[in-house]
């Protein structure tokens, strides 16, 4: 009898722990489902649902220029997912993808021995890892981005860290991205502090900022699928799948954080520093929202 009782108690304790463990991402999962659902509905049939989602877009343009219905994975194309003129233009540009040379450079850097004779492969024996970044490191109690991982690999091998956001660092990340193509984004929220970091990122995403009092949400959720001047606004769903990107404006590669920092600045706020806590939290949140989507970076952008 007592034995039975102990067993029940033990089982219920175990299940409570499981429930608790699963709980850290309960809110995030709720958010993510609502997020995905919004985008799938919005891009199911823009012509039929014009009043609800695209009231000011001329019907003619909706019929001619919009690609729909969009399925979950289609959002990997960012601003090209829904806007036919951009999609066609970039399909042409990608006949000879401008990111190809930087990716080759990245591969070379990856395999080139450091002064101590080791290579990046000593840290990344399997380079198909981008789907897990950024991740919350419970021991260090902070978000670790893929750029940080690259630089930490250099430092433990006695090399100087690289400048974040572009250049050689972006090239190595681009090589890792190519190796991770087809892997599904898998961001975890392992403990309470991770859940807090997620919430902080979420807050930044929805916060109206700068003299324009505008938020990421307004441009990349509410206005996703509309144009700001000639630029087709990308849906926030899938926003990180294609990173790093080669931007014609930059004349080179840039990482997710470089892109995010630019958008923060464009809304009239101060440009945040690379690898600063808020920027990492924003990236953590945004990447979590695309969980389950296949990676296919790098890609080309305006």
């Amino acid at each position: 009898m007592l034995k039975k009782l102990i067993k029940i108690v033990a089982i219920s304790m175990i299940s409570t722990t499981i429930v608790f463990a699963a709980n850290f991402n309960a809110q995030a999962e709720k958010d993510r489902k609502a997020f995905v659902d919004y985008f799938l509905k919005k891009f199911e049939n823009p012509v039929a649902n014009r009043d609800k989602y695209f009231p000011y877009v001329p019907l003619k343009e909706l019929k001619k220029d919009y690609i729909y219905p969009l399925k979950f994975q289609d959002f990997q194309d960012g601003p090209l997912s829904w806007y036919r003129p951009s999609k066609e233009q970039f399909a042409e540009i990608n006949d000879f993808p401008p990111y190809e040379i930087p990716v080759d450079d990245g591969e070379e850097l990856f395999n080139k021995p450091f002064a101590n004779g080791k290579t990046y492969a000593s840290c990344f024996p399997n380079p198909a890892i981008k789907q897990n970044y950024p991740y919350y490191d419970v021991h260090r109690d902070e978000i670790v981005t893929i750029g940080m991982a690259v630089n930490e690999c250099r430092v433990i091998n006695g090399e100087k860290p690289l400048k974040y956001g572009k250049g050689d660092l972006a090239k190595v990340v681009a090589y890792l991205a190519v190796k991770s193509r087809g892997k599904k984004i898998d961001i975890k929220i392992p403990n309470e502090n991770a859940a807090k970091a997620y919430e902080a990122g979420k807050k930044l995403f929805y916060k109206q900022r700068g003299y324009l009092a505008i938020s990421c949400n307004e441009c990349h959720v509410k206005s996703a699928g509309k144009r700001i001047r000639a630029e087709a606004l990308s849906p926030a769903l899938g926003a990180t799948t294609q990173m790093p990107v080669y931007r014609i404006k930059w004349g080179g590669l840039g990482t997710l954080q470089r892109r995010l920092a630019g958008c923060v600045k464009d809304t009239g706020s101060e440009k945040p520093k690379m690898q600063s806590k808020p920027l990492k939290e924003l990236a953590y949140f945004l990447t979590y929202m695309s969980n389950g989507m296949k990676l296919f970076g790098p890609d080309t952008r305006k």
């Binding site: 695209f54 009231p55 000011y56 001329p58 144009r227 700001i228």
Partner: peptide, 9 residues
């Protein structure tokens, strides 16, 4: 040139 369509005409 190239106006957006977030707001009404």
């Amino acid at each position: 040139p190239q106006t957006g369509d977030i707001g009404p005409k």
